[in-house]
């Protein structure tokens, strides 16, 4: 059993590690850009999975942590000339703190009420960033060219941001695995299945949920900073896209909720599919509609996601596909 469990952990980690190494070895800008997008979504989906998959709370506005953390990190970076790594870490910490405060309030809501509240918070945050002049209001903030100098110019700076993203993604997967195989994670799973029964069994649900919410916000906050650094600017419209939030949910759903490997598979599949639809002439104009149709079919017929489906069909893989 332990060996299988280790495989469930080593498989995603090894894939991510080798993949990142390959990108570094190939040293090609297009390859790096593709990998950046994929790693970003893998980390975002895995982060969301800690809340959605383990705890069972549907956060529709989870992108708010990407936006707020990214805004804060980018603010330190562009207005106070902090280096990239500390800025990103600060973005993650701020995200987690905001999640902690919000969580204490909104995690009392259940089901669709919680989902609605997260949408409201995302919209409120976007509107706030629109008006908050230290963050540049509606026009947002830009990076001075000089910010790239410590890395030896814009090119190497982009490579640096990729390497940080790679490490963060690995860390998120590690955290996801550790949470799932801990006493704390067992409590989260119990909350997901039946919160009232879990509390009767002694799970401190209010505290556990808040910690899960904070954990799921750290990654997006750090990644937001890296993403906006890579783009060179941040603005409210980019930072708080409700659409991206829902894409994260779709990725988790696609791969399989509550598994470590699921979000990784889901993110790769979704991003790959979107890329294919966008570049294939017949689907180009209808890519959103086709993606919607595929999503609908999955929800109606394979609600457990890819990993869940395999797990229920191939029992000996149950342990491997954590």
């Amino acid at each position: 059993m332990q060996a299988w469990r280790r495989l469930g952990f080593w498989l995603p980690v090894a894939v991510m590690f080798v993949w990142g190494l390959l990108v570094l070895v190939m040293h090609h800008d297009t390859v790096r850009e593709t990998a950046f997008t994929l790693f970003m979504f893998i980390a975002l989906a895995s982060s969301l999975n800690i809340l959605l998959g383990y705890t069972g709370y549907v956060s529709f506005g989870h992108i708010v942590f990407f936006g707020l953390g990214g805004y804060f990190g980018f603010y330190l970076l562009s207005q106070h000339n902090w280096p990239l790594l500390p800025s990103a870490l600060a973005g993650g910490v701020i995200s987690a703190l905001i999640a902690g405060l919000l969580g204490m309030a909104i995690l009392r809501l259940r089901g669709a009420y919680f989902a609605l509240a997260t949408i409201g918070i995302n919209e409120a945050a976007r509107a706030f960033a629109d008006n908050f002049s230290p963050f540049g209001g509606a026009t947002g903030m830009f990076i001075q060219f000089s910010a790239y100098e410590p890395y030896g110019g814009p090119g190497p700076a982009l490579w640096a941001s990729f390497i940080y993203l790679w490490i963060i993604t690995l860390a998120v997967i590690l955290v996801s695995y550790l949470v799932k195989h801990s006493r704390f994670g067992l409590g989260l799973l119990a909350i997901r299945e039946d919160e009232d029964a879990a509390m009767v069994m002694g799970v401190k649900a209010p505290r556990a949920k808040t910690i899960a919410f904070m954990l799921s916000a750290v990654g997006p906050g750090m990644i937001g900073t890296l993403y906006f650094f890579k783009n060179g600017n941040v603005e409210p419209g980019d930072a708080f896209q409700l659409h991206m939030s829902i894409e994260m949910l779709v990725m988790v759903m696609l791969g399989g909720m509550g598994t470590v490997l699921g979000p990784l598979l889901g993110a790769v599949t979704y991003v790959g599919l979107r890329g294919y639809l966008l570049t294939t002439p017949i689907f180009q104009n209808l890519h959103l509609a086709v993606a919607g149709l595929i999503l609908l079919l999955i929800i109606l017929f394979v609600p457990a996601g890819a990993v869940g489906w395999v797990r229920s069909r191939v029992p000996w893989l149950r342990r491997a596909l954590e």
């Binding site: 959605l52 069972g56 549907v58 529709f60 089901g111 669709a112 989902a115 829902i246 949910l249 779709v250 759903m253 104009n285 209808l286 890519h287 959103l288 509609a289 086709v290 993606a291 919607g292 149709l293 999503l295 609908l296 929800i299 109606l300 609600p303």
Partner: peptide
């Protein structure tokens, strides 16, 4: 669970917006 109906109706959203945009 709520997530299913939320995502199912969102899929309809994507389909209508996708076709509508085209």
């Amino acid at each position: 669970p709520h997530l299913s109906s939320l995502l199912a109706t969102f899929a309809v959203n994507m389909i209508i917006i996708g076709v509508g945009t085209a």
